[in-house]
């Protein structure tokens, strides 16, 4: 019934995919762009690369308004989308590269040099001579990345460049991005659901959620600000339960109860993980060392995934709540 109704009367609702996001990126920076699915990351990258015309606001990349798509701008940037391809499916990648060389007007010598470099860094080998449809997902992605960089762009927008790849391939792409940034001083804006990508590549992260900016700063500060907890991992001597201890339930390990020290995350095999409020870390550590037969103790920040989850759950920040009270027109 609903579909019949919408067939007769089309209704449309305006949805703001991205709303009032402001940030500046310095040349040579590698910035991680984080947010859950549907947060507006890809929309933002599409605006920055010039695919989308926003209804309002200003964007300036390398002195250009992206969506005017000036040739001078397009020659200096690239957009890689992990779930998209630009390579011709039926022919070897090298033929598509040759087309890109002509379109971007890359001098032949430069082209050969860049291709050699990319072949080495990405370990392309003979892959570029096989029809693209015969390549595995990871091989194809490497060829796609090379295609996107043949014109030596200064600005790289990478949307999930490692999506669907196995761990080895993820690491290779990641290493490549870092190396490309180092060699050519390129600016990189990257989205990824793999926190390893972000941790390995980005000092700075920008977090958006529901199209709004939640955080912009150092990855370390993000952890500090959004995670009020520390993780304490202790290992106990053999007499404290050990491998024979019952382990596990109710914060107890053997005879000992750890729940008095903080929230017990895991307790097994002579090893207990506790979550404690950041401010109490020192005090709890001291008490633990004094009252338990501890052989090893480490204090860690919680895993970055956990922090990010926390950020997303925390919703809009104070200033945004104020904005909502006094609506601003976004033309």
């Amino acid at each position: 019934m609903a579909s019949l109704r919408s067939f007769v009367r089309r209704t449309s609702r305006e949805v703001r995919a991205v709303d009032d996001i402001s940030f500046a990126v310095e040349p040579g920076e590698v910035v991680g762009f984080l947010g859950p699915n549907g947060a507006g990351k890809t929309t933002t990258l599409k605006m920055l690369s010039g695919l989308l015309h926003p209804t309002g606001g200003e964007v300036d990349v390398l002195g250009h308004v992206p969506w005017q798509r000036a040739k001078a701008y397009l020659r200096q940037m690239t957009l890689v989308m992990g779930n998209r391809n630009q390579l011709q499916w039926d022919i070897p990648a090298i033929d598509s590269y040759e087309l890109n060389r002509a379109i971007y007007r890359v001098p032949r010598d430069d082209f050969r040099r860049t291709l050699d470099e990319l072949t080495e860094l990405l370990e392309l080998g003979s892959l570029v001579h096989k029809p693209v449809r015969q390549l595995s997902l990871g091989e194809r992605m490497k060829c796609e990345v090379a295609a996107a960089l043949l014109h030596r762009p200064q600005v790289l927008f990478l949307d999930e460049p490692t999506i669907g790849l196995d761990v080895t391939m993820q690491r290779r792409i990641r290493g490549f991005i870092a190396e490309y940034n180092r060699r050519h001083g390129a600016t990189v804006l990257l989205t990824s659901h793999y926190m390893l990508d972000v941790e390995a590549l980005c000092k700075r992260v920008i977090v958006i959620h529901h199209g709004r900016l939640l955080f912009d700063g150092n990855l370390a500060d993000l952890v500090k600000r959004f995670s009020p907890h520390k993780t304490i991992v202790v290992e106990l001597g053999d007499d404290a339960g050990g491998p024979n201890g019952p382990g596990g339930s109710g914060g107890q390990l053997g005879e000992r109860d750890f729940s008095a020290f903080g929230e017990v995350v895991t307790a097994e095999e002579g090893r207990v993980t506790l979550r404690v409020p950041k401010a109490d870390t020192a005090r709890v550590t001291e008490r633990l060392l004094a009252s338990m037969p501890i052989t090893d103790l480490t204090v860690e920040d919680p895993p970055i995934e956990e922090v990010i989850e926390q950020v997303f759950a925390s919703g809009p920040t104070e200033s945004e709540r104020e904005n909502e009270r006094a609506p601003v027109a976004h033309e």
């Binding site: 087309l99 002509a102 379109i103």
Partner: peptide
């Protein structure tokens, strides 16, 4: 140059099909 490169691509694709 771009036209020439596209000629080659189309030629290769058409021969595939």
């Amino acid at each position: 140059d771009a036209y020439r490169a596209q000629f080659k691509v189309t030629f290769a694709v058409q021969l595939e099909y």
